[in-house]
Deep mutational scan, measured.
Amino acid sequence: KELVSALYDYQEKSPREVTMKKGDILTLLNSTNKDWWKVEVNGRQGFVPAAYVKKL
């Protein structure tokens, strides 16, 4: 599985998104959309802005 690192804090703005803190390591589930990537963090799945994470 592919991992990404959070470059910035992000506070979810809808139920489809997830909150992350800078430095968090997230499991990348889907990166086909260039703007929003689906990740899993702390057992929750949702979307984060692609520009806020980088692949490890």
Rank of each mutant, 00 (worst) to 15 (best):
L29C: 07
N42S: 09
P15S: 12
K22A: 13
L7H: 05
M20R: 00
E40R: 06
W36D: 01
N33G: 11
L26A: 10
K55F: 11
T19M: 04
K38F: 15
L3W: 13
P15Y: 10
G23L: 03
K22G: 05
L29M: 08
M20K: 00
S14P: 05
K54G: 12
L28S: 01
P49I: 03
W37Y: 08
N33M: 09
T27S: 09
K22Q: 11
Y8F: 13
G23H: 06
Y8G: 06
S5E: 15
R44G: 03
Y8T: 09
A51T: 12
N42V: 05
K55S: 10
L29T: 04
W36N: 02
K22T: 08
D24M: 11
E12T: 09
D24P: 00
K22L: 06
S5Q: 15
Q45G: 06
I25A: 04
A50Y: 03
E40G: 05
Y52A: 13
K34I: 11
S5R: 15
R16K: 12
L7Y: 04
E2A: 11
S14G: 13
L26H: 03
N30Y: 07
L56V: 13
K55E: 08
M20D: 01
K55I: 14
L29N: 02
W36H: 03
T27D: 05
S5K: 15
P49F: 03
E12R: 14
A50N: 02
N33Y: 09
K1D: 10
N42G: 12
K55W: 09
K22C: 07
M20V: 10
K55M: 13
K55P: 13
N42A: 10
N42I: 04
N42C: 10
T32I: 10
E12L: 08
P15A: 13
L29S: 02
D9P: 06
T19E: 04
L56S: 08
E2P: 11
T32Y: 10
S31T: 12
F47W: 15
N30M: 08
F47Q: 03
P49C: 04
L28P: 01
N42F: 08
T19L: 02
K54T: 14
V4M: 08
M20I: 15
S14A: 09
P49K: 04
V18S: 02
W36V: 03
R16Q: 13
K21F: 10
D24Q: 13
